[in-house]
Nucleic acid binder design. Structure first.
Lengths: 335, 335
DNA sequence: TTGTATGCGTTATCAG
DNA sequence: CTGATAACGCATACAA
């Protein structure tokens, strides 16, 4: 089955390819009879324009690249779904890669996006390639930062204010009498974890309380890491009375490990999580948590890229979302 | 920042574009000095070949399309992740769309894939577009069916044998004394649900037992549907004593609703699920389930497409995976 | 209104 | 070993 091109259509309709192109793109008037002939030819031959050729000519691929750390993370999955929903009706499709938080891989994938001439990039960045992203942006490819704010440069951005959330969580725990509060974060390099640290320390500072560095854990956004740290914590002489978990995955691990080690939440230790877990309603105790608003982040990211695609010149936009603490049963008051 | 092309490189190195192309593609010998000059020019100008142009010329995009019903379904997410892992090292990237089980959307997206000239398609099909997929395949784009087997035509395929699994589940329930067994499936149209039905009926047939059609539910792969049917079931005069759930999402809904309605599993009703739920270890009772092997399906799908890409002529391959029943605590024995 | 011809950035064929 | 040039499929400026 040969691929039929605009030439074939032209031949079949007995016109030039220019005219065929005109009726396809409705770019100028074509006489009704000829138009009809061409349309018939298109149907008969089942002609489909070659988007590669078009892209080469117009420098528009109708493709948006998404670069995230891990597709299998429900957090990002939801974002992707929302982005897809936003952009699909404008004819864009998504091309998607995951970096595993590896800056080198990230760089490679940014290159891939550039090479593939995507019309725009949505990225949850490791933060180590901002200089490079800047170049890509300057070359004409809009870039939207999601979940993690850029550090040095200016980019369109949408994320939840983790510093404020961490501040609120910490304050809440302090108000419940907790003084020894563990913060279990993802990688130290990733700016969101710095922000959580910021909010955490601010709460202690404002209450004129000292920070115990031993209670600050930086690792990975994985269930394994959460499990491992919980075990570690319970070997400590001077245990924390509460934990702040930076992500659902970490929370998953904490809960799993607590179950294995017969640790009771909140009786043995309190827990607050960034992001509720799947089926959270069924798991006892129901977690006190902050919503990560991933659906909203995704929706906004989709809209932002569409706007930016329409107007390349408009001012850089920064959407910082606030999230509230949802208080349920995983925190115990300390006398 | 202008985009630098092979012409710029050629000019900078003082050679023709043909020679530049030669060193880029190592397609024929170039004298060492010239080669060095060109390589330098490439670095200095930060030249990156335009993949669009290349694709137009070579008809190879290094892109694989994935068509599934719903990205936000963990089941498909895992598959995608595995596929990505398989193909990324061969320089392929994934373009991904979701159909929401809508055959018309599916058809549109198949077109998109065709138009974008992807090198191959991995699809979990509604089953309504096989004729069209056949044409696409004949046009030279390899197609791999995942999770759902093709019906009329021959395609490379990898899926778990749901009929056998359903047969095993049903047999198990029958052996535990259950006679009134509800089967809560996804859409009637989707072949996997027919297969489940097949396995279910076979078990009854082999045991010389009658089937109650009222206990056969077909709907959606959603939590809402699971919840709704559970409620419905408990309004029945003659309730089933056991439920077979066709998917994690449905199971989620069943568990959530059971919790709301104070229905105790397995005391009030037994439950077996296709696929375990997230954090299944923590939710009581731990489910008796069959593993959906999504990781393996994804891995195999990735390998299959790579092989097919290497050899377009090889025989159609069909991988049917078997899965075992994992018995835990959600089924009660009936006197 | 329609056709001719050029170029998008490559690769490949053919001379030299 | 190297260069000029055609071709990939399409869109469009320019001519007619």
């Amino acid at each position: 089955m040969e691929r039929v091109t605009i030439k074939d259509v032209a031949r079949r309709a007995g016109v030039s390819i220019a005219t065929v192109s005109r009726v396809i793109n409705k770019t100028s008037n074509v006489s009704p009879e000829i138009k009809k002939k061409i349309e018939e030819a298109i149907v008969e031959l089942n002609y489909r324009p070659n988007l590669m050729a078009r892209a080469l000519k117009n420098d528009i691929t109708h493709t948006i690249g998404i670069i995230i750390s891990d597709i299998s993370n429900p957090f990002f999955m939801n974002i992707i779904r929302e982005v897809e929903n936003q952009v699909k009706e404008f004819g864009y499709t998504l091309i998607m890669v995951s970096t595993d938080e590896d800056p080198e891989k990230e760089r490679q994938y940014i290159k891939v996006m550039y090479d593939k001439r995507v019309d725009g990039i949505i990225i949850s960045s490791t933060g180590k390639n901002e200089d490079y992203l800047c170049k890509v942006k300057d070359s004409g490819i809009p870039i939207i930062f999601i979940d993690r704010r850029p550090d040095d440069y200016k980019f369109d951005t949408v994320y939840v204010d983790k510093a404020k959330a961490a501040y609120n969580i910490t304050n809440y725990l302090l108000s419940k009498g907790h003084r020894k509060i563990a913060l279990i974060s993802g990688p130290r390099d990733i700016i969101t974890n710095y922000d959580r640290f910021l909010g955490y320390t601010k709460a202690f500072y404002n209450n004129n309380l000292p920070i115990n560095n031993e209670f600050l854990y930086f690792g990975e956004y994985t269930s394994e890491y959460g499990a491992q740290v919980l075990e570690q914590i319970f070997k400590l002489k001077d245990k924390p009375t509460a934990i702040i978990s930076a992500s659902e995955k970490i929370t998953n691990g904490i809960l799993l490990q607590a179950n294995r080690l017969n640790i009771c939440i909140p009786d043995d230790i309190s827990l607050v999580s960034f992001g509720d877990i799947e089926m959270g309603e069924l798991i006892k105790p129901r977690l006190t948590y902050v919503d990560n608003l991933n659906n909203e982040v995704g929706k906004i990211a989709g809209k932002m890229i569409l706007e930016r695609l329409k107007d390349y010149q408009k001012n850089v936009e920064e959407r910082i979302l606030n999230t509230n603490l949802v208080i349920r049963e995983s925190v115990k008051e300390i006398k």
